[in-house]
């Protein structure tokens, strides 16, 4: 036993606090509504067959169905046929809770479409952020021009402005331009990332001036230096920035909620969660948590894939 056991204890407690909501989310996404309500069933629930009440309600046999099915149940009166049909429907509508939750997540709302929207929006934002931030950061870090320090001061100042403070003016501007309910409304306000400019500028400060001078001697223009020299050396920093940017915009609920009103084709994944927010008749926690699990999975997978590169990038000084 090492003397550092208490450090591990603190870390384990922290890990539990961080992981508990994820545990609940994944667990709920497997369980039946009854198990969720009563808080029983362990992690997986008992996975007993359950009947989807809405499925049954939607397929309630009518007069025509009874007439059509009469031949299949000879010698039964109407009530008998109806009971038999109901039993069939219930058999059709019964499934394991896990299957129920996940199939609901994908069928009740066009979740695939939402995920696609999420990819389109986050990738567009990230790419445009790089296109803007890299040249800006290069200029702030390596070029000498009048007012450079003042401009950098402005960048730092902009870091202090909370998004929510400028949400309303932004919304009004977009509305006046007729851009609400478009991809542009989701992407454009985020294309200039002062955080990205700041982060890349700090990284570029560590790139030796000699490297840039060598590129100039070799005949590269300033833009070629940004894209052919600075970009490849900045991959570790870009990965770090990518994690911040993509996580923030993939998970963003506030901004899409404001600028996308009504048009479900533009919903991003977090907006999809609203589909299961039952207003009068209670919430569908199972499908909702299944949706949440589906939404966070791509991020976790992406981080696990990039993790090695990311940490390598941060520990490698790159230039030396």
């Amino acid at each position: 036993m090492t003397r550092d056991w208490w450090k591990h204890l603190v870390l384990i407690l922290g890990a539990i606090i961080v992981l508990a909501p994820f545990y609940m989310m994944v667990s709920y996404s497997f369980k039946s509504p009854g198990e969720i309500d009563r808080g029983i069933g362990g992690f997986f629930g008992r996975q007993e067959m359950m009947i989807d009440p809405r499925c049954v309600a939607l397929r309630q046999p009518g007069r025509a169905d009874i007439e059509a099915a009469r031949t299949r149940f000879p010698g039964q009166d109407d009530a008998g046929v109806q009971a038999a049909l109901l039993a069939e429907t219930e058999a059709d509508c019964s499934m394991r809770p896990a299957v129920f939750n996940y199939s609901k997540a994908f069928t009740e709302a066009p979740l695939i479409r939402y995920l696609l929207n999420g990819v389109i929006v986050t990738v567009s934002i990230f790419l445009i952020q790089i296109v803007v931030a890299l040249p800006a950061a290069y200029a702030l870090a390596k070029l000498k021009f009048w007012g450079r320090e003042a401009v950098f001061g402005l960048v730092l100042f902009c870091l202090l402005i909370p998004v929510h403070a400028i949400a309303l003016p932004l919304y009004i501007m977009l509305a006046k331009l007729g851009l609400t309910n478009t991809y542009a409304a989701l992407v454009v306000p985020w294309t200039i990332s002062v955080f990205g400019i700041f982060l890349m500028r700090q990284f570029f400060m560590t790139v030796p001036d000699d490297l840039i001078d060598a590129a100039r001697m070799d005949g590269m223009s300033e833009f070629a230096i940004v894209w052919r020299v600075m970009l490849p050396t900045a991959i570790p920093a870009l990965l770090a920035f990518a994690i911040f940017s993509i996580v923030a915009h993939w998970n963003d609920y506030f901004w899409p909620r404001i600028v996308v009103t009504g048009n479900r084709d533009l919903f991003t994944p977090p907006l999809g969660l609203r589909e299961f927010k039952g207003d009068g008749d209670g919430s569908f926690f199972g499908p909702m948590m299944a949706t949440a699990t589906v939404i966070v999975t791509p991020l976790i997978v992406a981080f696990l894939l990039a993790q090695r590169r990311f940490i390598e990038g941060i520990t490698l000084s790159g230039m030396k």
């Binding site: 030796p208 000699d210 490297l211 001078d213 060598a214 590129a215 001697m217 020299v229 490849p232 050396t233 991959i235 790159g318 230039m319």
Partner: peptide, 14 residues
């Protein structure tokens, strides 16, 4: 059309 060799070598790391 001049060539320069730098103290830090300034090779492109990538």
């Amino acid at each position: 059309n001049l060539s320069m060799v730098f103290q830090s070598y300034a090779l492109y790391p990538h």
